[in-house]
């Protein structure tokens, strides 16, 4: 702020930066532990307890995963599920939320309630599975894409974002003779970039975390990363040691590397999307 930097503002800034730095340190600290273990030998992990800087160094965990056919195919599956899934999500959600944001639309309240009601009540997995089966979608990514095509939560929140767009914009567009489609794509979407970027990220994360619907609907070779990861992290129940006696042992480095590699893609994507969070400035431009 070049206008005037008062003492109060400076104090305010110090408080803000202090708090943010403290919060970042707290967030970082356990993650550094995960990172440290991913480069450590098993012996160090077992003997040292909590630490942030490994004394040993090994890439064994990462190399193991990189050469693991299961990991690579899970990664491919996750990317497929996430990219296509998110495109479907964003297209359907944006259209629906925009439609529902029209205050003049008849039946809007009923439609909106139809969406909202699904947040509270659900039929459970068995009937959903039967629907998927009836549509012939089993063992196909479509089952995962379609059963989570729109999140009611995201649609409702996105609608409230669209409702914040000033009504004059719509009025002036209509006077220009633009139809609803042009209005949506030429004015509303560019204006709502922060919202759309946000929900893209939400959907990406949701798709990236696909676990249960993959287990329900997909085949062995279509399993995504989260299934792979969970199977590495799970500890078999000792009371059934007889049942699960394959004494298979993942090193801590391999387990933590899997966590790091699974989280990495979404951490890397964030800075790209973040650019769009600041596009709200355009609003002023349009108005002016």
């Amino acid at each position: 702020m070049r206008v005037r930097a008062s003492g109060a503002d400076r104090a305010f800034a110090i408080v803000v930066y202090g708090l943010v730095l403290a919060a970042s340190a707290l967030a970082l600290f356990p993650m550094l532990y995960v990172l440290a273990i991913s480069f450590s030998t098993e012996t160090e992990y077992l003997t040292r307890g909590f630490y942030l800087l490994p004394r040993t160094f090994t890439l064994e965990g990462y190399l193991y995963l990189m050469s693991h056919p299961g990991f690579m195919s899970a990664l491919r599956n996750s990317v497929t599920i996430s990219v296509v899934g998110t495109l479907i999500n964003i297209a359907l959600t944006t259209l629906m939320a925009y439609g529902l944001s029209k205050t003049w639309l008849r039946g809007r309240k009923t439609l909106h309630f139809i969406v909202f009601f699904t947040l509270l009540f659900s039929g459970g997995i068995i009937p959903t599975y039967l629907v998927v089966q009836a549509l012939g979608l089993l063992d196909s990514f479509w089952a995962v894409w379609l059963t989570s095509a729109v999140s009611a939560f995201n649609a409702i929140v996105m609608r409230s974002f669209f409702q914040a767009v000033p009504i004059e914009l719509e009025e002036s567009a209509r006077i220009d003779g633009s139809g609803e489609w042009r209005l949506l794509f030429n004015i509303i979407v560019p204006l709502s970039f922060p919202a759309i970027a946000t929900f893209t990220l939400f959907y990406l994360a949701q798709n990236w975390n696909t676990y249960f619907s993959a287990i329900l609907y997909l085949d062995n070779d279509q399993m995504p990363l989260q299934v792979f990861l969970k199977q590495m992290l799970v500890e078999d129940d000792p009371s059934i040691s007889n049942a699960s006696s394959v004494a298979y042992h993942y090193t801590p480095a391999a387990r933590m590397s899997a966590i790091v590699l699974t989280a990495l893609p979404l951490l890397l994507i964030f800075p790209f999307l973040q650019r769009y969070f600041n596009q709200g400035v355009m609003l002023g431009a349009v108005k002016g």
Binding site: M96, G124, P127, T128
Partner: peptide
């Protein structure tokens, strides 16, 4: 309104097919 209903339709279909039909399961 027609284009607007058209925009809502795909989402609505999703909710009916994958959310409301299974509600029989309640």
């Amino acid at each position: 309104a027609f284009p607007v209903y058209l925009m809502i339709l795909p989402g609505l279909l999703f909710f009916i097919v994958f959310k409301y039909i299974p509600m029989v399961g309640i």
